[in-house]
């Protein structure tokens, strides 16, 4: 039996570690706290790679060469891990050793934009009906619509506009729609951390 010097009576004692592979490593692996943190970290892993499996082509099957440095970077930047989670992974990849391979095929970008649009559509609880995501690396837009009928789920659309919108000032920009119609361009909002 290993005596654990870190507090671990309650779940709350572990909150900071629940999103930090680095902190998880400080807990002995045969302790329940380690497993609980591991469960949490796996959720971040699966949320990324189950939805964007293409990224595993860059990282290798266990995803760790992306996951670990990204989580550490996200920790430094205090990313909120809101709907924009996937977009931030792309932002990180763009300044990582994976950059050239990332930019050589736009399937990665399409995948993260669709994933973030879907996550917004399922998690946002504001009054908006849809979100439009744009990126400086493409003219295409991705729209996420919330569930609008009891028989449907959320819907994701890829749009190739005839007249492209101005590029967002940062890598990504977004705006939200108050109706189920894409009929306005109020300008780009930057991602919140």
């Amino acid at each position: 039996m290993i005596l654990l010097s870190l507090p671990s009576r309650t779940d709350r004692d572990l909150y900071p570690a629940l999103m930090s592979p680095e902190l998880n490593a400080k807990y002995p692996t045969d302790h329940k706290a380690f497993v609980r943190i591991d469960v949490s970290l796996r959720m971040y892993w699966h949320t990324l790679f189950d939805i964007c499996p293409e990224l595993l082509e860059l990282s290798g099957l266990d995803g760790m060469s992306i996951f670990r440095p990204f989580m550490a970077w996200a920790g430094e930047k205090k990313l909120a891990f809101d709907w924009s989670y996937y977009l931030w992974v792309y932002v990180w990849l763009r300044q990582s050793p994976f950059k050239d391979r990332l930019l050589a095929d736009d399937k990665y970008l399409r995948s993260v934009m669709a994933a973030s649009a879907a996550r917004w559509a399922i998690l946002d609880r504001g009054r908006d009906c849809g979100i439009v995501i744009g990126c400086a690396d493409t003219r295409n837009l991705v729209i996420g619509w919330k569930c609008r009928s009891v028989r449907l789920g959320r819907e994701i659309e890829l749009i190739e506009p005839e007249e492209p919108l101005p590029a967002p000032p940062d890598i990504f920009g977004y705006f939200t729609l108050q109706t189920f119609e894409l009929d306005v361009f109020p300008g780009w909002q930057s991602l919140a951390r």
């Binding site: 309650t10 779940d11 709350r12 909150y15 629940l18 999103m19 469960v39 971040y44 205090k78 891990f81």
Partner: peptide, 21 residues
């Protein structure tokens, strides 16, 4: 339950501390 810590979202939601909270 808790959805976030210091403004950062949990993907596996957190339990509160029943005695102190």
């Amino acid at each position: 339950l808790r959805f976030s810590h210091e403004g950062r979202a949990f993907f596996h939601l957190g339990e509160i501390d029943y005695s102190t909270e």
